[in-house]
Design a protein around this nucleic acid. Sequence first.
DNA 1: TTAAGTGCAAAATCTTTGCAAATGT
DNA 2: ACATTTGCAAAGATTTTGCACTTAA
Lengths: 147, 147
Amino acid sequence: MHKKAANTFEALLDKHHLKKTGPRLQVLSMLSSKKVATSQPDLENIMVDIDRVTLYRILNAFEEKGIIHKVFDLNGTANYAMCSSKCGEDHHHDEHLHFNCTTCKNVYCLDELELPPISLPKGFKPTGFTLYANGLCPKCSLATEGK
Amino acid sequence: MHKKAANTFEALLDKHHLKKTGPRLQVLSMLSSKKVATSQPDLENIMVDIDRVTLYRILNAFEEKGIIHKVFDLNGTANYAMCSSKCGEDHHHDEHLHFNCTTCKNVYCLDELELPPISLPKGFKPTGFTLYANGLCPKCSLATEGK
DNA sequence: TTAAGTGCAAAATCTTTGCAAATGT
DNA sequence: ACATTTGCAAAGATTTTGCACTTAA
């Protein structure tokens, strides 16, 4: 199962004509291990052995290829998460709900959720939607249970 | 009508116990004159006579008081717009749709639009929603008419 | 072998902080 | 007069760029 995951990462890099380097595999396994988006500062702190500049370049490359997507949290900080399988180099599927917990600061990407149809004023031609919500995530909500 | 607007700005500052200074009135009249949110870089370029640091402080103060609200565009850049009348120091009403035009880069705050009710997975306790859309605004859409 | 990727140094930006001078009340 | 607010200088943080060295293919 772990082997399989590793292979998946290498296949992913192959697919996008990116070399399978240590730093890139590290980033992939890191992001895959979390169900929430990770902020760039956090990534830097976790993967101290990767140069900060290299991290920038890896994240940018991955985003361009549609391997990960970037979402800004309430502070305008970039957070990164693996794209769902629906993402492609062409079509970027990050039109889901991003839930920003005000307590633990985690950003949850709720892929499964369907956005209800939105009607815009006349003239606007939307190509994509992203919905942000903030509040308490299940874990923090539980911790505050009963006020 | 213009006089009235100026008075409105002064009243607004009074209401929030902020001194009526030149820079602050400038920012208010600037932001009020546009129906779209303005990015901080743009504000700096437009109001070159206001010190950059002063602008930071004014924008922060206004945001804290609920006079303006901040919205991040697709590039993670902060954009500012006047709050609708519904905003207060306590309750911040920026739960409307922000439309980010991919051509002219303008950010439209579509206050009037009601967000459809969103149901979240069990456990999430949302306190606020913000919806972003990107695509073509009416003006740019018109310019591209007929492909 | 060689094109792509990394790491380091350094530049360019962006944002915050401290303090003296200016300004509104 | 006095507390705020401003502007400048300078520190801190973030992001980008250039280039020599390393590494995957």
